[in-house]
Each structure stands twice: as structure tokens, then as C-alpha cells.
Amino acid sequence: MTSEVNSRPVTDEMLVAYVDGELTQNEQTSLEAALEGDEELRARLALLQDGERPWAEAFEGLLDQAPVAKLEAAFAAAAHTHAEQARAEQAETPNPGAHPVAADSERIPANDHASRSWWRPAMAACIAVTLMVGFAAGYGTNEVRKPQITAAVQTEAEIWRQAVADYQALYTRETLSTAQTDPTAQSAGLLRVSEALGLALPDAVSQVPGLDYKRAQILKFGEQPLAQLAYLYKDDIPIAFCIVRLDDPDQAAKNEVRSGLNIVHWAKDGFSLMVVGDLPVDELDNFAREIEGKMI
């Protein structure tokens, strides 16, 4: 194309810039003058215009396919690694004004991405990821400083609840601000998640008085699909209802605290279910009972 510069007064680059509105007023005027008397040039322009597509609209669809939960997790992992690196650097360069580094803080080598990827859908990675977020979730709360190194001796259900709680602890109201609020889309989302999970999620679970339903998505716990329904309480506190098939015996609702969040969990028909959020036990209990009632 550039080789044509000598034989043609107007290059393809200039033509495409003209189509894209990137020429200055002067350039545009002289190019339009050149077009007037040059049929061949008009033909090339028409060809370039034939290469026009509804780009933004087409790629909007790809945006809708983004695995939002995984990406949020990837960001959390990056933020965690970065925080660890910053802490390690601080420890190496003593600064009298800075806070002392906690004695039990883990030094993590300042590697970038490859070995600490959050992305592998294997069980081992899932547990590793639990550990990783275990640190991150503690920031700001002063509660969970140590990694959950007891994971190996926990039951699968406990590991699951810890993973969900760690993950939930990273949520803010902004995390859910991009969720679709169109009822048709929400209903379709629930159906998609129901199918992946193998358990019917009635539309009613999205209508919990006092909670603003945001979205349903499928995450992965080991090889098992993990359903996550996200709600917002008083436009401020993220609440999640999560389900995974662990084939544990039925169990009535119990309370516990993980990563500083209250949890109500129960098991039914092979599925383990939990409601988690930064709410007082009583309030969370009420919501959990409401949701449990809708699942029957």
C-alpha cells in the first residue's frame, strides 16, 4: 500500500482516515477534491466502506459473555499478590514511620502471573485459591491474617463454605453495580444456572423481600458447578446465596462465621446451600429462611 504512494496522490491510509473522520479539515477538503475527478479513487473508497461493520454492536455480545466472577477473582488475586509484594518491599526497606510488618505475614516471592494463576478449573487450584483469598479477605478487618492452612483437614463442605466466604468478603456494592436488572434477562440467567447446576431455581428466589436481586452465575468448585445468586441489602451490603452438589446427607440450617461474615448453611437432596453476608445473624437467618422456603 505504501508502495502506491508514488503512483497515487492519495494513499489507502489517507482514505481510511477519511472514512474514520481522522483527517484534519484541510486534508479532508483536498481529499474530497481529489475524489471528484478520480473514479478509481472513488472505487477504492467504496471498497473500504464495504469493509464497514457494526463493530461495536457485534463486540457488545462478547462483553456479555465475559466470565465476570472469574475476572473479579483474577483481579482479587492480582490485588493480593501486589499487596504481598508491597508488604515484602516494606519489610526489606525499614521505614521508621511505617507500621511494623506482622510477624506471621507470609513472604511471597514477587512473581508475576504464571504460577499463581487463578484460572485453572481443577480442585487443587480451587483449594490453593481458597488459601490465596484467605489472606486478601483479611485486609481491613484485622481478623483473618493467617492463611487457612487447615484446609487439608476440613471436609469438602467446609472448604466450600470457606471458599465462598473468602470470595464474598471481596464483594462491594460496586461489584454488583453492573448487574443486569432487566427481569427477562434475570429470569434467563436463573434458568441457565439451574440447568448447569441440575437443580431448579424458581424465579421466586429472586424475589426476597428486603433484598435487591442482582444476578445468578455459575462458578466452579473443583469439577462441580457452583451456583451463586447475588443480592444487595439496602443498596449497600452484598449478600450471596450459593449452591453446590456435594452429596452430603440432609442437614438443618446452622450458623457459623467465616472470614468475618455470617453464614447460614444447610443441605438438602444432595445439595449444599448457604447464605452469606455481612449482616447480623438474626437478619441473615430471616433471609435464609425466606430463601429456603422458596426452594421447596
Binding site: D12, M14, L47, L48
Partner: peptide, 20 residues
């Protein structure tokens, strides 16, 4: 910038050829 322009022109020519 010229490289961006030639890439876009090339992409458009390719797509135009497909359409034609």
C-alpha cells in the same frame, strides 16, 4: 499512527472482499 492506518485499511479491504 501510519501502522494503525494501514492495519485498518487492510482489515477493511479484507472484509470488503469477503462481502463482495
Amino acid at each position: 499512527i501510519g501502522t494503525i492506518m494501514s492495519r485498518l485499511a487492510a482489515a477493511r479491504f479484507k472484509l470488503a472482499a469477503l462481502r463482495r
